[in-house]
């Protein structure tokens, strides 16, 4: 579980690095009425929900194995 968390954090930070640019350039996050910001927020929420579902699924599988 901890490993998964680190992978997730690494992913989030690498995405941020991708968008972080020198100030005089307009980064992707700044274009189009900053709609990318909303997209990033929604995708983060969605990633969190999916990670949570996967975690519950794993826990259940473990329980099911113990019960057999």
């Amino acid at each position: 579980m901890r490993k998964l968390f680190f992978i997730l954090m690494a992913f989030i930070f690498s995405v941020q690095q991708l968008f972080a640019q020198t100030p005089d350039e307009v980064s992707a996050m700044e274009t189009n009425g900053k709609i990318y910001v909303v997209l990033a927020v929604c995708l983060t929420i969605f990633a969190g929900i999916v990670a949570y579902l996967i975690r519950i699924d794993r826990k259940l599988s473990k329980l099911e194995k113990q019960n057999d």
């Binding site: 997209l39 996967i54 699924d57 599988s61």
Partner: peptide
């Protein structure tokens, strides 16, 4: 975790929905 193709499909389809839904 019970691995199933349709769980992966669900995530991919929704990722597509969010991305395209915001940007088109």
């Amino acid at each position: 975790m019970q691995k199933s193709w349709w769980k992966i499909l669900a995530v991919l389809l929704l990722l597509y929905t969010f991305t395209a839904g915001f940007l088109i």
